[in-house]
């Protein structure tokens, strides 16, 4: 006889999941709550209901300038990370080069190395070679730390693809470029897209590298928010944050609709 799972344990499991959900979502809910407050001060539960802080954000040069920098960097990073990372993943997957395994590890290493160690090195090297940091520094830095995500998702998709398709195309007379463009690229497209979305999200939300590589006139959105939090936060910070949360929700929905989020969650 199999003994049933005791009822208290089932109830306990549900309570546990509910509490964990509350714990994980609480800070996000609070930020959104603060952003719709009418009051001058940060308060949760919010006093009254208004969108005045959103209006404030959309009229603030400071936030708009930061958003514009973040957006430009994130888009540039997405494109370069997909191009460079996708190409590298294809080459690693084919395993014709020596040290393919070692190269895979090499490409994934920025994932495990703490960003702060890299950030301080990048700041020191850039200052020694080129002087003050620029948007180019941020672009390079974010590309380096997002590259592993693109390589990983693309490799995951390629490892499930049909290896004989490319060979078939070769026998049918397709040249190298045609094979890459018409056969391999469509095969790794889901991985590239997922990696691209992750790259955009990480670059847009990243604070550590951006805090080290900043200039007074070049702050990304997370750095702008961090600065406000250190000194005098008002509900407009919550409004900016809520807009960023909305963007994240949108990205998750897009990834899930296009590719299924479960696939990329647990590997």
């Amino acid at each position: 006889m199999v003994r049933a799972v005791p009822a208290w344990l089932r109830v306990g499991a549900w309570v546990f999941v509910a509490l964990t959900a509350l714990f994980l979502l609480a800070p996000l809910v609070v930020v959104v709550g603060v952003s719709v407050s009418e009051s001058q001060f940060i308060a949760f539960p919010p006093d009254g209901l208004s969108l005045r802080w959103y209006r404030e954000v959309l009229q603030s040069d400071r936030y708009l300038a930061s958003a514009w920098i973040s957006l430009r960097v994130a888009l540039a990073v997405t494109v370069t990370a997909c191009l460079i990372g996708g190409a590298a993943a294809i080459a690693i997957h084919r395993r014709t080069l020596p040290f393919s395994e070692a190269m895979a590890t090499f490409f994934l290493s920025p994932l495990v190395l703490p960003t702060i160690i890299y950030a301080i090195g990048m700041l020191m090297l850039w200052s020694a070679l080129f002087g003050p940091v620029s948007i180019l520094t941020l672009w390079l830095g974010h590309t380096a730390i997002t590259l592993p995500f693109v390589v990983r998702t693309t490799l995951a998709v390629l490892s499930e693809s049909d290896p004989f398709l490319e060979e078939a195309a070769k026998t049918m007379g397709a040249n190298r470029l045609q094979r890459l463009w018409l056969v391999v690229l469509p095969q790794c497209l889901p991985g590239l897209l997922a990696g691209g979305f992750f790259a955009f999200n990480i670059s847009f939300d990243e604070a550590v590298l951006s805090l080290f590589l900043r200039r007074p006139d070049m702050t990304t959105l997370p750095v702008q928010i961090y600065g406000q939090l250190e000194f005098s936060p008002d509900p407009s910070v919550a409004a900016v944050s809520s807009i960023m949360i909305a963007l994240t929700v949108f990205l998750i929905i897009v990834i899930d609709r296009m590719l299924g989020i479960q696939k990329f969650a647990s590997n």
């Binding site: 800070p27 930020v31 939300d205 997370p222 928010i225 939090l229 936060p233 944050s241 949360i245």
Partner: peptide, 11 residues
């Protein structure tokens, strides 16, 4: 996927 800065703000 939400920025660490924002989550910390919530706390």
């Amino acid at each position: 996927m939400t920025s660490v800065v924002i989550r910390t703000f919530g706390w």
